[in-house]
Write a protein that binds this DNA or RNA. Sequence first.
DNA 1: GGTGTGACAATGG
DNA 2: GCCATTGCCACAC
Length: 111
Amino acid sequence: MIENKGFFEKVYYVTSLIPPGRVSTYGAIARYLGAAGSARMVGWALNNCHDSGEFIPAHRVVNRNGILTGKHHFGTANAMKQLLENENVEVEDDKVLNFAQIYWDPCRELK
DNA sequence: GGTGTGACAATGG
DNA sequence: GCCATTGCCACAC
């Protein structure tokens, strides 16, 4: 499983489990990994997601406000928004509109 | 092995 | 209720 993996691997794993059309938050992922309060680590891990060798749907991970904080790190500013809209996720002004509805909590969904 | 950092989150004014 | 500050913990240098 992912227990033996590093924290980054765990982040990559959980992030890859986010179903299309759903979004999650850094804090939720961090809490699911047992590192509650280290939400920043999740963002940092996703920052190095390009080193994982696999594509990580980091566009499905936003902050607790549903704002696409890391859009700039995604390459281009519109890339993240474009990917979300491609998955039927309504995004406007760099934030998810129906964020509360499509919010995917690993603690609740994966359990 | 110590310091800095980071795509956040929570609290305080 | 909005803006500024602090805490946070794991990883890179």
